[in-house]
Design a protein around this nucleic acid. Structure first.
Lengths: 354, 354
DNA sequence: TTTAGATCTGCAAACGTTTGCAGTTCAGCT
DNA sequence: AGCTGAACTGCAAACGTTTGCAGATCTAAA
C-alpha cells in the first residue's frame, strides 16, 4: 500500500509545502494548533489535507532544536525494581502525557552508571525538566541541576535544606499513626526499624517515631535499630538485632514495607509469630501488601497521586522560574490488617525448636 | 562559584573552539572518541581542557538532528503498575545504557491516550528503535512501525505471524511443567484459568495446558475458563465460574500470577482452602509471590533477562536491517511453594457457612 | 628538488523545524 | 481617491551539531 516503497525518505514539512503550493513556514503555522489562526481557513484545511495525504509526521527533534523545548522530562529512580516506584512513575507519566510531554527514565539501581552520569545523560537530551526520586538529605545532584538551571522537583524524598520544590508524604505523621495504633491496642514496648538516616524518609520517620513515643511518655517505651538499606534482607538483620537487644518488645513499626517483610523473616527464624507474639506495621502500602501472610498493617501513601503532583509542580516551575519553591505534603492513612493485634497478657512462650 | 551567574547561555562547541583557538569542527572531532584520532594529540588534549574549563556539556539533540540517530529507544508498556513489567523495564534500561542509549517509556495503561497515539509520539521523538510489550497476536502497531521503518522488537508477547523479532518465554512448556507437577502430586481433575486469547501468552498457555492434559490422557481430565483480563478481579470471576462448572477439580493452573491470586479470593469466598481443598499454580513469579499466603507455586520467568535480551535483539536490528527476524524463547522453570499439595483422598468436606 | 602521500585543520552545508520581519493584498473608512 | 490597518504569506536566519570536501603543511621516497 505505501506509494513508494523502497527506503522512502521520511516526508518533511517541505514536501507538504510543495504539494500544497505554499511556503514551508505556512505549513508550520497551519499544522500547529496554536498558530493555525494565522493562516486563512481554507488554506489551512488544504494544507492539513496535503499533510494527511503524504502521511506527514512531525519531527519533534528538529522542532526542539529550534524552540529549545524538547517536550521531554527526565525521571531518575533509585531502583525501578522496587515496587513503590511503579505507581509513582505511573502517576508521573499520566500527568505528563496530558500536556504532551514524554518521560525518559533512568534507573540508578544496582549495576547502573553513577547517578551523576545518568543525570548528565538526561540533561544532554535537553530534558525540559527533571523529577528526582533519588534525593538524599544532602544531595549533590540538585546542585548540578541548579547550575545548569534545569527545572527540577523532588518526589518521595526531600532535601534537608529545601532548594527546590518537593512532594512527599508526611512521614512524621505517618509514624504517629502507627505508634498510636499499637498504643491503642495496648502495646507498651515498641521497636522501630529505621531506614537510612541519609534519606529524608529514614530520618523523619525515626523522628516521628521518637516524637510519638514521647507523646505517650507515661505508658510507652521505644527502641530503635537502623537498617542499612530499604530491603528485605536489611530489615531481617535489623529486626534480629532489635529483638536481641530488646526482647521485651511486643510491637515493631518499620520505616518501610520491605523492612517489615524482613521483620517477618526474622520473627519466623526465631520461632515467633506475628501478630500473636509481635505485631508489625509497615510503611508505604506497596502493591500486594494485603496478600502477604499475615496481611500487613501499614501506613498508606498515595504514590500515584504523589507522582501526579510532582509532575504538576514541575509544570508550574517550567512555566515560570520565579515560582517560590514549596513542599507538598500528602497525608498518609493507616490501613489496619492482620499483622497487628493486642499483645498477649501472659509472658511470651519460650520459642520451641523442633 | 559559577563564573558568570545570570542566565548563562549554555556553552556550545563554538565557545570551546574560540577558547582553544580552533574551528568548531575540530572541537567536534576532538570531543568524539571515535574521531579523536583525526586531530593532533596535543591539540586534542588542549581542546579537552578548554571544554572542561568551560564546563561544556554536549547537546545530544543537535547532534541527533544532524546524524539522524537520537540515542533514544522507546518502550511501550501495557501497564506500568503491573508488577511484571518492572523487571522487564529494568533489564531493558540496564542493557541500553551500556551502549549509551536512553529509554523513553510510554504507558498504555488505563487513562492513557490510545497506544497508537503513544507510538506516534515516540516516533516523533525520533527514537532509534522500539520495544513493544503490548503486542497482541494481531497487532496493528507493528505494521505502523514497519511502514516508518523504525526497528522494533517484541517482548513477553509475540505476534501470531512473526514479522519482527521477539523474546518470549516458552509458554507451552511452562504449562507443561505446571500440569506435570499437579499430575505428579496425584491430581486428576485440573482446571485452567486462561488469559485473553488475543494475546500470545493467553492463547499459548491455553494450548500448552490442553497439550499437557492430552499427554496424560489416561489419567487426567482438564477444564478451562477464560478470564477477561490479566487482573486479580478477572481471575476471581473466572475461578468462580470454573468451580461452579467443574466442582470436582482439585487443582487450578492459572495463566498468570494475578489470575492465581484472584483464584485465592474465589476459593476463600467459597470457604475452600488452598492447598488443602484446591491446589493453585501461577505463572510469572512476580516479586513477592513467595510471601503471599499460601506462598504461590508458579512458573518462573526471568523477566529481567527477557528485557536485556530484547534490548540486545534491538541493537542487532538497529545495526543491520537485513538481520533475519527471530524468536528467542526463554526456558521457564517451576518454583514449588506452598499452594500445591497432594489432593485429599476423601471427598471434599461440604463448605461450611459460618 | 620534486612529487606523492599522509596528516591535520578549516569551510560550509546540512539536518527539519520555528519565528521575527517585511512584503502583499484587500476591506473599510474618510 | 487616498489612507490606515488588518489579515495573510513568504523570506531567511537560527538552533548546535556532524561531516564531505578541499586546502595546507609536512614527511619521506624518488
Amino acid at each position: 500500500m505505501p506509494p513508494n516503497s523502497p527506503k522512502a525518505r521520511p516526508v518533511t514539512i517541505k514536501d507538504v509545502a510543495q504539494l500544497a503550493g505554499v511556503h514551508s513556514s505556512t505549513v508550520s503555522r497551519a499544522l500547529n494548533p496554536a498558530t493555525r489562526s494565522m493562516v486563512a481557513q481554507g488554506l489551512a484545511a488544504s494544507i492539513l489535507q496535503a499533510a494527511q495525504k503524504l502521511g506527514y509526521q512531525p519531527d519533534h527533534l528538529a522542532a526542539s532544536l529550534r524552540t529549545g523545548r524538547s517536550q521531554l522530562v527526565g525521571v531518575l529512580l533509585p531502583d525501578i525494581a522496587n515496587p513503590v516506584f511503579a505507581p509513582i512513575l505511573s502517576g508521573i507519566t499520566e500527568r505528563l502525557i496530558e500536556d504532551g510531554y514524554s518521560t525518559i527514565v533512568a534507573d540508578a539501581g544496582p549495576g547502573s552508571p553513577s547517578a551523576t552520569a545518568l543525570l548528565d545523560g538526561l540533561i544532554a537530551h535537553r530534558v525540559d525538566g527533571l523529577i528526582l526520586a533519588t534525593a538524599a538529605r544532602e544531595d549533590t545532584l540538585v546542585g548540578r541541576c541548579l547550575e545548569r538551571d534545569v527545572p527540577v522537583v523532588l518526589v518521595n524524598r526531600a532535601e534537608a535544606q529545601p532548594r527546590v520544590s518537593a512532594v512527599v508524604s508526611d512521614d512524621m505523621r505517618g509514624m504517629q499513626l502507627a505508634v498510636d495504633h499499637l498504643a491503642a491496642l495496648g502495646h507498651c514496648k515498641i521497636g522501630h526499624i529505621a531506614g537510612p538516616p541519609t534519606l529524608s524518609t529514614g530520618l523523619l520517620r525515626l523522628r516521628g517515631f521518637e516524637a510519638a513515643i514521647r507523646d505517650h511518655s507515661t505508658s510507652l517505651e521505644g527502641f530503635s535499630q537502623n537498617a542499612t538499606a530499604y530491603s528485605r534482607e536489611a530489615g531481617a538483620e535489623a529486626a534480629s538485632k532489635l529483638l536481641a537487644a530488646a526482647p521485651q518488645i511486643t510491637g515493631i513499626v518499620a520505616a518501610n514495607d520491605l523492612l517489615a517483610l524482613g521483620a517477618y523473616d526474622a520473627l519466623r527464624d526465631r520461632g515467633l509469630h506475628c501478630p500473636d507474639d509481635v505485631s508489625v506495621v509497615g510503611h508505604n502500602d506497596m502493591p500486594l501488601m494485603d496478600l502477604v501472610a499475615p496481611a500487613l498493617t501499614t501506613v498508606r501513601i498515595e504514590h500515584r497521586a504523589m507522582g501526579r503532583e510532582a509532575a504538576d509542580l514541575l509544570f508550574q516551575r517550567m512555566r515560570r522560574d520565579d515560582i517560590p519553591t514549596r513542599m507538598v505534603m500528602l497525608t498518609p492513612r493507616l490501613v489496619i490488617r492482620g499483622s497487628t493485634s493486642a499483645p498477649h497478657q501472659d509472658s511470651r512462650p519460650a520459642p520451641l525448636r523442633e
